[in-house]
């Protein structure tokens, strides 16, 4: 086997890992879309906001300190304590649940029965509002997030695989963070599936996703289910925010990963959880392999920025409902 082949495998593995992160973001979209028919443009910003909040709590930052300082002329920045990562994560989950309740109470409860485009516009507004709040609350500087996840290339894997093709092959370079992210994503998805299949609330959630009227008629409160689903989406956003934040720092460009989730959704279908996973993996592997095989040698590189969208467009032509989406059947 040639070195080129093993480099290809390394690219493929790295693509899978990147795909897991895309899938995590896409998962948040799917959850909300399934249960309420809302395409939540704010999912990416929710990941950013969750990560900002987590860093803020861990470092003992005073929320809205800039605002407080500007009004009262004080010079407050930190409480002066540090919160351990696990406790901070739990507190952040609490914040995301409060956020879910607020979103439901102040926005979507008033928009029940509106056109999907109106709901979509509301989420765009929500996205920019939340970005502003995040800025005001925690400041706009780039922060490092360290919750104790191992980082850097795994020497063990590198040593084990060195010299596979020839003397010149130095082994696979795989980031430990990516491995952790993959394991976390698998656990998260398994937990979500178990929750929706076996618990009472999960059954209610599936019922609401299927038919609102029928769900009401068996005594399910749509309001409760929507808060639940936004909370879960907030939790998924937090997980995605931690992974991305640990990888590349918590910065406002994090909210743009939402745009990477779009081709994933087109590929996997907006209503399918397995679709989000498989779609994410295909996009991740696809863009890395394309860059490696065609992009870098023949097109001058940097194809990763657009390849995902081209792939999604090609898919749209042949399978508009996505890989796992519900079939679109026109009844005459």
């Amino acid at each position: 086997m040639s070195d080129q082949f093993y480099y290809g495998i390394e690219v493929l593995l790295n693509g899978l890992m990147a795909g897991v992160l895309y899938a995590l973001v896409a998962l948040g979209f799917v959850l909300i879309y399934k249960a309420s028919g809302i395409f939540n443009y704010a999912q990416g910003v929710m990941a950013l906001f969750a990560a900002l909040t987590l860093v803020g709590i861990m470092e003992g930052q005073i929320p809205f300190s800039h605002l407080i300082n500007a009004i009262f002329g004080t010079d407050l920045h930190h409480f002066g304590w540090e919160v351990p990562a696990l406790l901070a994560i739990l507190l952040t989950v609490g914040v995301m649940v409060l956020f879910a309740i607020a979103v439901q109470r102040f926005i979507f409860r008033h928009l029940v029965g509106q056109e999907p485009i109106i709901l979509f516009m509301a989420t765009i507004g929500l996205a920019y509002f939340l970005e502003g709040v995040g800025d005001l609350m925690w400041g706009s500087d780039i922060k490092t997030l360290d919750v104790g996840i191992p980082q850097g290339g795994s020497f063990w894997i590198e040593d084990m695989t060195a010299g596979l093709g020839s003397e010149n092959f130095f082994g696979f370079f795989i980031d430990k963070l990516d491995i952790v992210a993959t394991i976390v994503a698998i656990v998260l998805v398994a937990a979500l599936v178990a929750f929706s299949q076996f618990t009472k609330q999960g059954r209610a959630l599936r019922a609401v996703a299927d038919d609102h009227q029928a769900a009401l008629s068996v005594g399910i409160s749509l309001n409760f289910i929507w808060i639940l689903v936004w909370s879960i989406a907030g939790f998924v956003a937090l997980v995605a925010g931690i992974m991305w934040g640990a990888k590349s720092g918590v910065q406002f460009s994090l909210s743009l990963i939402a745009l990477k989730a779009l081709p994933v959704l087109m590929l996997g279908g907006f209503t399918s959880i397995p679709g989000a996973i498989v779609g994410g993996l295909i996009i991740g592997v696809g863009e890395k392999l394309f860059e490696f095989l065609i992009g870098a040698p023949y097109l001058g590189g940097a194809t990763e920025n657009w390849f995902a969208y081209v792939l999604a467009l090609i898919f749209l032509v042949f399978r508009p409902q996505g890989l796992f989406g519900e079939r679109i059947i026109e009844r005459v």
């Binding site: 019922a207 996703a209 299927d210 038919d211 029928a214 769900a215 008629s217």
Partner: peptide, 12 residues
């Protein structure tokens, strides 16, 4: 209640 046009959860 039941519905005139049947409101079941089709995917379940």
């Amino acid at each position: 209640r039941t519905f005139q046009n049947i409101a079941l959860f089709n995917g379940m």
